[in-house]
């Protein structure tokens, strides 16, 4: 019996009778991070990191939550469970599961470059590693975060010169906070969409020191926005909500922007390949650092990535899960509701 099984509800540990990031309601859920394709509604009990708890409360409402610190073991029916930084977004964790000397790690989403707010990815030695592979092709090789921030700042500066508002499209949870840091160094007012505002407030209330932002309101004067910065989630892109900012230029922050066709499809003016996922080299580095004898790749380019690992002598298989894949779309859907609330 494998320590973790791939069931139709999610990753299942039979010995401990708990699920990791289940996509259907279960009795016990261990959550890697607060994005909606991983943290779903309806379970009776959620175990997560301290930093994730307020975000789950924001998104899933009141439930039975238990939170732990990094590497603080919890024993569930003899199974030792601990959380380790994944570097994806604030509070994101890899889940380490140990029973009778055998160790499995489920990565959740992760990136290997330290972004300064999400915690530095920690390689966790294990026998079996379940890894994401959203960007599991060698065409995905990210530029350094600082270089991308430089590109974004130049773009903002040029828009300001042309008297245009810079509308940056970034997920309300994760990317928005990540770009906020360098943007705040420019000394320009930063306005945010309601969905970004809600996350921002939840983080500030739980003790995060984040640069100041202003929520875009129906009565925000147009003159205040000209040449300044607006951060909005993908679901706001192309909606009437944007009209207020005219004339504006849209910049999209997403790993998918690495390929020109994607940027063109989104009709974005500027694409910044800034991702909260590991690139091909990050994935390989992470897999090797675990020393795992067996790897399961899921979500994204799992078939190419696992084939490559096999050719490298690392036994690997692919697993179908309901995480991501069309990650952008699923997160957009979640944020649509927030927008409706915001517009209403």
């Amino acid at each position: 019996m494998p320590l973790i099984e791939f069931s139709d509800k999610g990753l299942y540990c039979r010995q401990g009778n708990f699920y990791i990031d289940p996509w259907k309601p279960v009795d016990k859920a261990v959550i890697t991070h607060a994005h909606s394709d991983h943290a779903r509604w309806g379970s009776k009990y959620y175990l997560c990191h301290h930093l994730t708890k307020p975000l789950l409360q924001l998104r899933l409402g009141d439930n039975l939550y238990e939170s732990v610190d990094w590497n603080e073991p919890v024993f569930i029916n003899g199974v030792k469970v601990s959380l380790h930084p994944a570097g994806h977004i604030i509070g994101s964790a890899q889940i380490r599961v140990e029973y009778e000397g055998e160790v499995w790690v489920a990565s959740g989403d992760y990136k290997t470059e330290d972004d300064g707010i999400s915690g530095a990815f920690e390689p966790v030695p294990c026998n079996t590693f379940i890894t994401e592979s959203t960007f599991g092709l060698p065409i995905y090789k990210w530029k350094k975060q600082l270089d991308i921030f430089e590109d974004i700042k130049n773009w903002v500066a040029q828009n300001k010169e042309n008297k245009k508002t810079s509308v940056l499209i970034a997920y309300s949870l994760g990317k928005a906070q990540r770009v906020l840091m360098p943007l705040s160094e420019m000394g320009l007012p930063v306005y945010v969409h309601g969905a970004v505002w809600n996350v921002h407030q939840a983080l500030v209330n739980s003790g995060w020191k984040l640069p100041e932002v202003t929520r875009v309101q129906p009565d925000t004067p147009k003159e205040d926005l000209v040449g300044n910065i607006v951060i909005a989630p993908p679901s706001a892109d192309g909606t009437p909500w944007m009209k207020k900012f005219y004339p504006y230029s849209v910049g999209t922050c997403s790993g998918w922007m690495q390929v020109r066709g994607n940027a063109r499809r989104r009709n974005t003016d500027a694409g910044f390949a800034l991702s909260d996922h590991a690139d091909w080299y990050g994935l390989l580095q992470a897999v090797k650092a675990t020393g795992a004898q067996k790897v399961y790749a899921t979500h994204g380019f799992q078939s190419a990535f696992s084939r490559f690992l096999n050719e490298q002598g690392i036994e690997a298989g692919e697993v179908k899960t309901e995480y991501g894949g069309e990650e952008e779309e699923s997160k957009a859907a979640e944020e649509t509701e927030e927008i409706i609330m915001d517009n209403g």
Binding site: L137, P138, I139, K141, Q258, V259, R260, G261, F301, A304, R307, F308, E311
Partner: peptide, 26 residues
């Protein structure tokens, strides 16, 4: 130059949808 196998190149090409761009990225 990039030291990759032809099948992996093909995967990349079919994802990018443009040969010149695939090469530039690899």
């Amino acid at each position: 130059i990039a030291a990759i196998e032809p099948w992996l190149f093909d995967e990349c090409y079919h994802t990018v949808g443009d040969l010149g761009e695939t090469i530039a990225l690899l």
